[in-house]
Each structure stands twice: as structure tokens, then as C-alpha cells.
Design a protein around this nucleic acid. Structure first.
Lengths: 333, 333
DNA sequence: CTGTTAGCGCATTCAC
DNA sequence: GTGAATGCGCTAACAG
């Protein structure tokens, strides 16, 4: 926005075309019907001056910025990267720009960050898995229009992946294979996606009293998985459900290094289906979360909210696809 | 920006505090010195009304948006994701917002996209490895202030990783291990980072006539690597330099599946040092590109350009760190 | 120190 | 159809 070598404004075009400002505005916006000859004069003048309206001034007077914000807790997380990607592409196609805000995991700042970005945009896509419910509720009001990702609420449109069902599916798969002693490597205890897994676990446990399930607090990356491999062995479990693929790869690496065979001695399942999970040895059983599609859906929801503010909030839960691969097999006798 | 339930403006605050608009503006911006009593009245009025100035109106009058744009060819590329992350964090700390623009690999649209985003921001960080030189040159002029990433130019500040030196280091490493027949799996022939590798290769070849180097057009992902594994074997090379880690993992997977031992039968080196490269078996020799740091440096360069437009362009080339791991070993007899 | 005035660049009433 | 005002919300001269 440095108007360094004095930018060309609508007035310059008007002068060059010998018309009024309003006429220029009209032809450039395709409004009203203006004399063809004049219109042509304006168009060539604009072209020669390489003129285009200032988005800023336009935004101020029109009350919309053609921009939406997306706030995420961590741009380093592949899930949010994919969501951002899908969102950015979809919004871009519709002529909208995207402002990103990374709260750097500081939950306290999340709300003010969201507010700040909201004021420079027409709406915000909120990824705030760890924000507490009260803060979320009041945020939703001040952020509107807002669409919430991966988190249930009745006060705003929601798009998300049904982690719970997918996780449950993996549980049943292991059960069918004969596993009765399972261990779950949990991620961040305060995240909603961890809660979804825990919920699936609880429901499964209630329905299958014969299965013993242990939870080991772990983390979300390869190193965390590697770190708890010892605990996993000590637990005597025949199958391990990792919080995600990275964790699964971490345990798998150490387990194999220690001489265990997968899945003969122990089965391992991940979550997320990162590209590399089909290239580990053995290949990894996991669930494919459609994060990019989620981003695209988030845009659709936002577009709806933008055009019809009074429309009732919708919820759009996508079911992850479970990929059964080599890392899970029959429980050892 | 929907001012739906009529937003509170500076006039409301002024009215409530019984002062003029300018006074409100002054205290809220810490300008000039205003009567303490008045200042206090204004502050409480603003607080009670939950007022904060419209960034839009502010931008229009101040001529700056407190926002910078970053345009990348593909948000799906980990390199750009990391750059974005580093940039976003650094800019955020300085009170700046970040607008992302994904050109979706359409080189033609890149320039207009960059222009469009530039008008809504104070500057742009340009990642355009495939844009041709002419387009780049003229873009730099119309985008200023602009900082260019991973691409040499004298017309703008540059930050980048010295791919060439790092790649060269890996070449020498393999040479010391006795390898004399190498194969390079190239990425996108038109990308600048592929060019850097090719340049290193050429220089090395010139200095070492005893080494035979073959190039196999490949790609940039795991699948591409897997696809060319056959060609690699047929080439009779004792070492393969992959365009990046994903490609390396792809070849490595298929090679091992075919019964080849790594590094005993053939050495494999990657590039990028993605987190998982230290967990493959064998662990992968590669070079760690400091993309996040690059993002941070890009912000620093942008901040300089923002504050002093007449400062001479600087170039900041970071040297990737080569990580020698298990996938490379002595050449077989 | 404080209030009044004049724009920032544009879209849009309203008169002609 | 077209041009002359009015205002979006705010900051920065400019006077008092």
C-alpha cells in the first residue's frame, strides 16, 4: 500500500476520459447502462493508465473485503496445512483472498487473534480444537459469520471429520482379528480430536467387556511414539492404536529395532493416512482424513454464510476412510 | 466487515466521552499529549463501547495495511508450508498479518495473483521458482517492496537456501565412499531448486572425469521415486541421489522389496531432511533445509524493506546442513 | 492542549 | 444517461 510514486486513482481515469468519477465507477463495475462510446473511452483510459480500483477504498465503502480469515493453532500441523490448502484454493476460485493467523498454540491469544483478523475480513474459519467451550461460545457471536472446523456446536456452521466413527472402525477391525489387549497412545489430552478417539474407545470398551484397553499418554510426533515403545512392550498388549501415523511410525521403528515382528508379534494402527504410511515396512493400517476436502467444504459453508446470514447453521461431517494394510494382523496365540 | 448491527465508530466514543474525534484518535494512538482526565474519559468510553478502530479506514488514510502477502506455487509443498509458518510467526510477533496466495502451479496466473495481493498489502514475499526471468523482473518492479525466496536476483532482497553447496557436499561424500557411477533422479526440470542441483552436478562432473553421472527424469514425490526404481537398477549405478527425501523413500522402498540391500548394494541420498527421514530403515542421508528459518529471515528482510525503502537489496543464503546417515555407505566392490 | 476541516479512494444516492 | 454531492471511518494538518 505504499502509494510511493503516486498511484493512479479513479480521478485520473475520469480526467483522461473526460467524464465524471461516477461514470468511470459505473463502467468499471458494469453498473447501469452508459453510453457505449463513453464506456469505450473510459475503458481505454483505464487500460492506458493501468488503473484498477483500490481494494481498500472499495472495501471501506462497500463494507466487504473479499477476504476471509482462517485461524489455526499451528501451521506446522499437516492437518491444518491441508485444510488451509483446500480452503485457499476454493476461496481463490471464488475470487476471495485468505488471511492466515497462526496462534502458535497459545490458547489464550486465540480469541483476540480471531477477533483481530475478523475485523480485516468478511468472516473467519476457526480451527480451535483446544479453546474452552465458554470462550468458543462467545467467540462465535463476535466472529459471525464464522465456520467452525472439527468441533461440534449448534451456534455456527460446522465442517469436520468424524474421527470417532473412523477410530471405532479400526477398533472393531482389531477385535475381529482376535486382539483383546489393546493400548492407546494418546495425543494432546485437551484437544477435541483426542477426545473423539477417547470417546470411541469408551464406547467400545463398554460394549466389549472382554477387551482390556490401556491408555499411555504419548504425544503427536515420531519421537513421542519412539519414546513410549518400551512401555508398549511392557504392557503386554497385542495391538497398539497410535494417536496418529507419526506416532505409529515412531513405535514401529523402535519395536522392529528391538526385534519384534509386525504384525506377527504385535499389530500397529495409525491415523491420518499421511502419504508415507503406504511406504513404511510394513505398510500402515490407518484412516484417511479428508483434510483438504474439509477445507473446501469450509469454504462452501462460509460462502453460504456470506450470502445468506440468516440461514440456519449446517453441520458437515466427513467420514474418514479406513485403510487396512500390513501393520495389523491376527493376534498372536 | 459486515457492519450488521451497526458497528461502533470513533464518533460514538467521542460522543460518550464528550470530546472531539481527534482527541479520541489521539489518546487511542498515544499521539501528542492530551489532558490526563480527558484521556481517561476516552479510554473508559472506548472500553465500555468495546471500541477499536476499523483497520480498513485506518489503512486507507495511513497508506499501510499492516499486512504482507506471500505467494507460493503450491501450499501442498512442505517447503512452502514451513516458509509460510516461519514467516507467519515472525510477522505476527511484529504485529503484521499475512495474506496467502496459492497460485496452484499455474505460472501464468502467478504474476497477476501477486499484483492483486500486493494491492491489499504492504509488500509481498514471492516464492516463484518457475516464473520466467522476464516476468520476474517486471514483477519485482510493480510489487516493491518485495522479497524473493530461493531465487537469485539483484533487483530485490533475497533469502534462500544454498541448495547447490549442500548438494555438492553430498556428491563429495559419495565420492569419498568410492562411488563412481551415480544416478540423479531429477525433479521438475523448470524449477530453480532443480537447477541448483543440476549446477552442482555439472561442476562436480567437470572436476571429476572419472565419475559417471546419469540423470533420470523422475518427479518430486514418493510414487515417482518408486516408479523409477527399475531404471535405477538397470543403470548399474552404485549410488542414487534423489531429488528429495520423498523420492528417496520411494526408490528405497521398491529397491528393498526387490531384495537389494541398502547401503551394501546401493547407496541412496535424499534432500530436505523431512522429519521422517531419520526413521526410515535404513535412516536416510540427506540435507536439512532450514525452511522455517527462511521464512523468519524473509520477514526480517521485508521489515527492513518496509522501514527503509531505499536500502540496498540484501541477499541471505542459508547453508543446509548435511546429515550423513545409514543409507549411504562404501561402494560395493 | 483541543476542536474543526480536509481528505484517503471509491460507490452511490440525488438532481439534472 | 450523466455529473455533483455525500459518506464509509479514520488520521493529520490546521487554527484557536
Amino acid at each position: 500500500m505504499s502509494r510511493s510514486p503516486k498511484r493512479v486513482t479513479i480521478a485520473d481515469v475520469a480526467a483522461k476520459a473526460n467524464v465524471s468519477l461516477s461514470t468511470v465507477s459505473r463502467v468499471l463495475n458494469g453498473n447501469a447502462t452508459v453510453d457505449p462510446a463513453m464506456a469505450e473511452r473510459v475503458r481505454t483510459a483505464a487500460a492506458e493508465l493501468d488503473y484498477s480500483a483500490s481494494p481498500l477504498a472499495r472495501s471501506l465503502v462497500l463494507g466487504r473485503t473479499q477476504t476471509i480469515a482462517v485461524v489455526v493453532p499451528d501451521l506446522g500441523n499437516p492437518t491444518f496445512q491441508e485444510i488451509l490448502r483446500g480452503l485457499s484454493r476454493a476461496a481463490g476460485t471464488a475470487g476471495y483472498h485468505v488471511l492466515v493467523a497462526d496462534s502458535a498454540e497459545t490458547v489464550d491469544e486465540e480469541r483476540v487473534l480471531a477477533r483481530a483478523t475478523r475485523r480485516r475480513t468478511d468472516g473467519v474459519v476457526l480451527c480451535a480444537p483446544r479453546m474452552d467451550d465458554a470462550a468458543l461460545a462467545s467467540s462465535l457471536r463476535e466472529l459471525s459469520p464464522v465456520v467452525v472446523v472439527n468441533r461440534a456446536t449448534a451456534d455456527a456452521p460446522v465442517v469436520g471429520a468424524d474421527y470417532r466413527s473412523a477410530f471405532s472402525e479400526i477398533l472393531h477391525h482389531l477385535h475381529r482379528l482376535g486382539h483383546r489387549r489393546l493400548v492407546f497412545l494418546s495425543g494432546n489430552p485437551r484437544s477435541s480430536s483426542n477426545a473423539a478417539r477417547t470417546a470411541a474407545l469408551a464406547a467400545f470398551a463398554a460394549a466389549h467387556p472382554d477387551v482390556m484397553i490401556t491408555e499411555i499418554p504419548c504425544g503427536v510426533d515420531v519421537d513421542s511414539g519412539a519414546r513410549v515403545a518400551g512401555e508398549v512392550r511392557a504392557s503386554g498388549a497385542t495391538a497398539v492404536l497410535a494417536y496418529n501415523d507419526l506416532v505409529a511410525m515412531g513405535v514401529m521403528g523402535v519395536l522392529r529395532r528391538d526385534g519384534m515382528r509386525i504384525p506377527d508379534d504385535i499389530s500397529v494402527a495409525g491415523f491420518d493416512d499421511i502419504p508415507f504410511s503406504r511406504w513404511t515396512s510394513p505398510t500402515l493400517t490407518t484412516a484417511s482424513v479428508p483434510s483438504r476436502e474439509l477445507g473446501a467444504r469450509a469454504w462452501e459453508a462460509m460462502e453460504r454464510a456470506l450470502t445468506d446470514a440468516s440461514a440456519p447453521p449446517t453441520a458437515d461431517w466427513l467420514l474418514p476412510v479406513v485403510a487396512l494394510r500390513e501393520s495389523t494382523g491376527p493376534a498372536p496365540a
